[in-house]
Write a protein that binds this DNA or RNA. Structure first.
Lengths: 168, 168
DNA sequence: TATTGTTATACTCTATAACTATA
DNA sequence: TATAGTTATAGAGTATAACAATA
């Protein structure tokens, strides 16, 4: 229980604790927000990656797996697994395109559309929970600042970078 | 190249694209910031998890692996692997505690201290890059808002939630 | 030949559980 | 018996590369 000290190279004494900067706070609070959202949609049997794909299909129905792979910055084989899961849960269907039978047109099923509606409700409650420490003015301010950063860094609206693996 | 359409359950037409809320933007920009930071420290041969452990040891030298595991919210066996790596790179040393030979006192080596200094330089540049779209006033505003959320949600200062696995 | 999607495989990360040594 | 740390193992997630079908 007691923390003993021992001679070591670092020891003049502990490093002064610096206040965290905006970038670290962004990563910290962002990861926290993502984890809380993951908890919420877990009750729908989904993980965050599923939610993102579902939303991308809802936003632009009929798109191909390739287009999904490009926008997400992942390899096509991963999209196969992602869509496989959503299809097996009955949320998404692969429709053959008669003009070019190589690709699929992805669509939500009726169930998928219902799940999307529930997800929006969960997202709204999530939003309120995360911003609970702020008043309405501050909340709008925060949104504006984050939008400015996202725009300046060239982040695609609505695309979470969490799909990509380690190197970029 | 042309996106064809196909009859499907979702189709009245595409969902209206909603503006992202603060919570999604937080997760998006936060993950982006984390990824950019990972790129930077990659040149030191480190990944974000290493950086966090290094900083925690620097902040409180002599602490045990157990205390690290608790604060990070991970299982002790994972700390073994984390510290193993840092020790093999010569950044951290395990000192036996003569009073209680069960636990180790973790310390930075001289090299470890140097790496910490370089990390601070990288973090500073990273900070500037992420906030490049904001002026100084906005940057301070953002920091304040994020601190408010972190405090309200009970986030431990300086502890990134990214260590924990999926459930919580 | 080029493109879309799939399968097979290997690799990385992480938790679980059993274990050693010390107390 | 309890605690700090370790090892062995298994599972999940993801990329790579070879492949099949279609153009």
């Amino acid at each position: 229980m007691t923390a003993q000290r021992q001679a070591g190279h670092d020891d003049g004494w502990a490093q002064r604790v610096r206040p965290a900067g905006a970038a670290f706070l962004l990563a910290q609070v962002g990861a926290y927000a993502a984890a809380r959202f993951a908890e919420r949609i877990n009750e729908l049997g989904l993980i965050p990656a599923d939610a993102g794909v579902l939303r991308m299909i809802a936003t632009r129905p009929g798109r191909s797996q390739q287009s999904l792979a490009e926008e997400l910055g992942v390899v096509p084989s991963r999209v196969v697994a992602l869509v496989d899961k959503l299809e097996s849960k009955g949320l998404v269907e692969r429709l053959r395109n008669p003009q070019d039978r190589r690709n699929y047109a992805l669509h939500l099923t009726a169930t998928g559309t219902q799940i999307m509606a529930r997800m929006r409700g969960l997202a709204s409650a999530h939003e309120d929970q995360i911003c609970a420490g702020l008043d309405d003015t501050q909340r709008a301010q925060l949104t504006g600042l984050l939008e400015a950063i996202a725009a300046h860094q060239g982040l695609a609206p609505g695309v979470h970078p969490g799909y990509q693996q380690r190197p970029r």
